[in-house]
Design a protein around this nucleic acid. Structure first.
Lengths: 211, 211
DNA sequence: GTCTATATACCGATAGAC
DNA sequence: GTCTATCGGTATATAGAC
């Protein structure tokens, strides 16, 4: 279960020209989409390479052509989530302005990334640390969380956040609320990504009470 | 992976008198405690019966004496969580009084159950519905969630909760915050169970903003 | 009530044909 | 680039001794 290096495959679209057999061919992105969906539905450990292959309408060997193994598919999926989240911290809005404004900006953008890369972030949030691939991803995620909690500390020092509850608990409840979106949000549902982001920020900062 | 009926074993304490071999004997509760801890650390699917046995310092066969199989251990663990949560709704404080007071009571008691039965509720919240045992547990959990969201609807109609965000989203964000406790709360840490319950209620109803 | 040994099945991964 | 066939390992579960 050690981490294996990625080998970049060439791009190829579903149904495009391919080898001499009659089957549709997939590029790595298509394989990854279906694989991550399967991981999320059944759990990583409970999903066999045969499951993945059968959902792709192909064989195990074809999957092994695109990725070096099951751990590699997991790693590639987790990377997509982490790249997105880390990208939020690099945006200008995360680096300039008052602490509470930067905090709101980062939380809002994080919600949008979570929704735009829903399957990948879902996978990330369910990782338990059983393998090197999972532990590496968890380390990157913890670093992201730490950066956000630094922002929360700043906003707290500014007097923008309540001080009757300790910062650590505040951070955790906030992340709990945001991360739970992966458990219920469906892109085909009635809520737009912006609506969810607005609602989360509103509830997080002002609570459930009627104003 | 079908659901198997439980066979109630007699109680027996660790290290108590037992069969003729030198090993310590366990009662079902002790087996279950260690099994559920293993399920939570490694994930249910990734935890083999050999893992469980070795954490108990015994053999696979000894585990099979106490439970009819891996699915049975899961079922028994999930029952402990669900019995606790459903018990909250039967308490007098959940049935009499103003809607917003009943809501706060139920949420507070749910947090306390979550903490008191932390490993079992953790297991429940990670179930994905791959087997009959998991699907049965998820159905019971959904019914609990539904009862609480009825309370939220009532409190909303009373004018106690904000109406600029739809009830469904409000419910989900609230549960997200509460359920996330299993990801970080440790009984040996600095926060008492009552402190966590107070903090959750405070943040949920009044938000993060300084008052 | 716990042990060792084993039946049976499925897992991830690879070989080699086409 | 995908196929079938298979390797070696590990899984759940059981049999039978003590």
């Amino acid at each position: 279960m050690a981490q294996t290096p990625a080998e970049s495959q060439e791009k190829r679209t579903v149904g495009g020209g391919n080898g001499r057999h009659g089957r549709a061919a997939y590029d790595l992105e298509a394989v990854l989409d279906i694989t991550v969906a399967a991981f999320n539905e059944r759990g990583y450990d409970a999903t066999s390479m045969d499951h993945v292959a059968s959902r792709l309408g192909t064989s195990k060997s074809a999957v092994y052509y695109h990725a070096s193994g099951k751990a590699d598919l997991l790693r590639l999926g987790l990377e997509r989530a982490l790249d997105g989240l880390e990208g939020v911290l690099k945006l200008p809005g995360a680096q300039r302005g008052a602490a509470d404004e930067r905090l709101k900006f980062v939380l809002r953008e994080a919600v949008l990334v979570l929704i735009d890369r829903l399957p990948y972030v879902t996978l990330l949030l369910r990782v338990r640390g059983n393998t090197d691939v999972e532990r590496d991803a968890m380390a990157r995620r913890r670093e992201f969380d730490r950066q956000v909690s630094l922002l929360i500390d700043e906003a707290r020092s500014d007097g923008s956040l309540r001080t009757d509850i300790d910062a650590r608990t505040l951070t955790r409840l906030l992340f709990g609320m945001i991360n739970s979106i992966v458990e219920w949000y469906r892109p085909e549902g009635p809520l737009s990504r912006e609506q969810v982001a607005d609602d989360v920020i509103a509830v997080a900062f002002d609570g459930l009470h009627a104003s």
